[in-house]
Design a protein around this nucleic acid. Structure first.
Length: 185
DNA sequence: CAATAGATCATCT
DNA sequence: GATGATCTATTGC
């Protein structure tokens, strides 16, 4: 615990998430994902809009699986993909609207091995996040997101989302320019 | 270096 | 029964 301990500040409040999902995805860049003692800086995100977004799980509407997405903002949505990887999303928009943000890459800050490339399936493994965290409130408890202590301007780049077949051209992926922990260059 | 294959299972048709 | 918000190893130029 040295300079890294001073790099993050207060927990992001629920009103941070209760906004248009594109804004939330962009503003999460530079914030800190904290699980227990493990901390990573968010450097890459993707926005999934809801029922109007054919690439989003919520596109088909309310099912047992998408229940969390239609619930209140500031909660975790964790699901299994390809039978072996888990992905972490943060629910955005006011309750009833199913926007969410996929956390795609972290820069290791504390308690993480810093030498590996990142990615949405890898970061959950490194952070110890599993489907047990699905539905968890991310504004309190052991899994939270914190604001930077000092909000410095972050150079943001935009691109299409990765790994999807529908709405594949929509510019909904956001990442910090030049950051070496972004999943693709 | 780029392209492809295989692993593996919850969810929805 | 097909699909999928992935990752790694391997093959091929």
């Amino acid at each position: 615990m040295k300079s890294s301990a001073a790099s993050f500040g207060r927990i992001l409040p629920r009103r941070f998430y209760a906004r248009p999902v594109v804004e939330v995805a962009r503003d999460l860049l530079g914030c800190y994902l904290c699980h227990g003692r493990r901390v990573g800086k968010i450097v890459e995100t993707e926005a999934y809009l809801g029922v109007e977004d054919r690439a989003a799980h919520a596109w088909r509407g309310l099912t047992p699986r998408t229940r969390v997405l239609f619930g209140p903002p500031g909660h975790a949505y964790v699901y299994l993909i390809y039978g072996m990887h888990e992905c972490l999303n943060l629910v955005a928009e006011p309750e009833g609207k199913a926007g969410c943000v996929l956390v795609r890459a972290l820069e290791p800050v504390f308690g993480l091995n810093g030498t590996r490339p990142s990615g949405p399936g890898k970061l959950t493994q490194d952070m110890g996040i599993t489907r047990r965290h699905n539905g968890r409130d991310v504004t309190r408890g052991s899994l939270v997101v914190r604001a930077p202590r000092r909000r410095e301007p972050v150079p943001v780049a935009v691109s299409p989302r990765v790994g999807i077949t529908r709405c594949a051209e929509w510019p909904l992926r956001f990442y910090i320019k030049e950051n070496p922990f972004v999943s693709r260059r």
